[in-house]
Design a protein around this nucleic acid. Structure first.
Lengths: 151, 151
DNA sequence: GCTTGACCTGGAGTCCGCTCCAGGTCGCAG
DNA sequence: CTGCGACCTGGAGCGGACTCCAGGTCAAGC
């Protein structure tokens, strides 16, 4: 059995976490204390890297570090915490879904605005507007009044 | 013509921005200076509220305030900035799309983990696992080794 | 054996986006 | 005319998530 290990720099490169962040997470208890070499240097194992990959899922979906720490603690506390882990992850999943929905909705509004602007440009540049009245297409109030409304 | 106006408190209730945030945004130049009553109180108009609604689209999709300020400035600078506004919004839109993709992908990984845990529970509680081998379903390395691996 | 770059620690600093505060005004109800 | 709550200002403070720093250690190459 080889049990290769990785330095903090290598793990940083693999996971995308900065070296400082890796040490910071370890301090917080978000990662179990990593094994050390004789000289005191961190030696990450494949499981550590796997765990970090999952941590990146949590972080990148906006879980606060404190909750990540709680989750890590549950994992450390043994298999009897599995139901709590599921609850925690499921609750987080719901928040992420909600967040995605917000992004989709708001992104649609932004695209709507872009289209409005493109309509403005089309009218201005050539006199050939392919689309009629795209500036009145909904609750787009105060579109043209947003600039220079104060004389 | 009615031209109703709203106090900062009303606008806060309508837009979801806190009163402090509304004033903060105005200081930053993210909102054009709002008209004032004789006594110096802010009187928001419908256009202001409409603008704030759009600002909330930008904020809620993660645009930094500095970029929102830039956008506000472009809007103030007149119609000739429309192409730049489109660029700014389109670039932002792409980032948001990318963000949504990240969320979807990472959320899938989280769900995968939940399913793995549910498999663990099913095996433990009853002896009737409906699904076979869900703990080896992919690059899910170090699943069972993440806890108590250090004797 | 010496240099050099990656690593170590604890703690301070930074950045962002608000949020709160003190001390003062406004304006409507009673 | 007196409360009282909502409003005003400039500036300080806060919470989160890192990020940087000083001062020291380690190990591989020459």
């Amino acid at each position: 059995m080889s049990t290769t290990t990785y330095s903090v720099g290598e793990v940083s490169a693999r996971t995308g976490f900065s070296v400082d962040t890796l040490r910071y997470y370890e301090r917080l208890g978000l990662i179990e204390p990593v094994e050390r070499s004789v000289g005191g240097r961190r030696m990450y194992r494949d499981e550590d890297v796997g765990w970090l990959d999952f941590v990146s899922c949590l972080r990148d979906t906006g879980m606060p570090v404190e909750r990540m720490r709680e989750f890590a603690e549950l994992c450390r506390d043994g298999e009897h915490t599995v139901p709590e882990r599921v609850d925690l992850l499921a609750a987080h999943g719901q928040r992420v879904e909600a967040e995605i929905e917000v992004l989709r909705t708001k992104l649609a509004a932004i695209r709507h605005k872009i289209e409005y602007y493109e309509g403005v440009l089309a009218l201005r540049d050539g006199q050939g507007p392919d689309q009629g009245g795209m500036d009145k297409g909904g609750p787009e109030a105060g579109e043209s009044s947003e600039e220079g409304r104060r004389a």
